[in-house]
Amino acid sequence: MATQDNTITEVLVGAAVLAVATGFFFYASGTTGAGAGGQTYEMAASFRSAEGIAVGTEVRLAGVRVGTVTDMTLDPVSFRAETTFSLRDDIVLPDDSAIAIASEGLLGGNFVEIIPGGSPFNYGPGDMITDTQGAVSLITLLMRFVSGDGTQ
């Protein structure tokens, strides 16, 4: 009889673990936006240096996540990082907006930041943002400081 009680207990504990794991999965996918089913549209940008970002990196506007980097390739002619990113379709960007790779701080990760312009005309789906600023390398800045190469 004790063997049957152990089996029932093991089944109940296994079911509880499975339920918690399923709940955690749905919570995590909702928090990260992986489960978001909202409509999006694609845009592109070309960076001299896309150091610190990858597919899945957040795209933010005024500190709020509005999209995600969906593709990165190297242009073999210009040697620039061609990035594609998706934006929520309720976000309409003026056509003089800029895009930059920003850092959350000294030890934080990087993200793509959109700096909105003031033009009355807007970018459309599939357009390329031409005003870009690539990643700033902390090591390069430190080396310039140490070597005294403070050219302005």
Rank of each mutant, 00 (worst) to 15 (best):
V13W: 06
A15W: 00
V17K: 14
L18Y: 04
L18I: 12
L18V: 02
L18A: 15
T22I: 06
G23T: 01
F25Q: 09
F26R: 10
F26N: 11
Y27D: 03
Y27I: 10
Y27P: 01
S29H: 12
S29M: 07
G30P: 06
A34M: 06
G35S: 13
A36F: 02
Q39W: 00
A45V: 03
E51H: 09
G52S: 01
G52K: 10
A54Q: 12
A54C: 01
V55S: 05
V55R: 12
V55N: 08
V55C: 08
T57M: 00
L61E: 05
L61V: 05
G63R: 06
G63N: 01
V66P: 08
T68E: 12
V69P: 04
T70S: 15
D75E: 04
P76T: 08
V77F: 11
S78V: 11
S78L: 11
R80S: 02
A81N: 15
T83M: 14
T83K: 02
T84Y: 03
S86W: 09
L87S: 04
D89L: 00
V92K: 11
L93C: 06
L93T: 05
L93I: 03
A98L: 10
A98Q: 14
S103E: 09
S103I: 02
L106A: 08
L106F: 14
L107P: 04
G108Y: 02
G108H: 02
N110S: 15
V112Q: 09
G118F: 14
G118H: 00
S119R: 09
S119V: 05
F121S: 13
Y123C: 03
Y123G: 03
G124Y: 06
P125M: 00
P125K: 10
P125C: 05
G126K: 09
G126N: 10
G126L: 07
D127N: 10
T130K: 13
Q133V: 10
Q133H: 09
Q133S: 10
Q133T: 12
G134H: 02
A135R: 13
V136M: 11
L138H: 07
I139T: 14
T140N: 15
L141R: 15
L142H: 03
M143W: 07
F145S: 12
F145Y: 14
V146N: 09
G148E: 05
D149V: 06
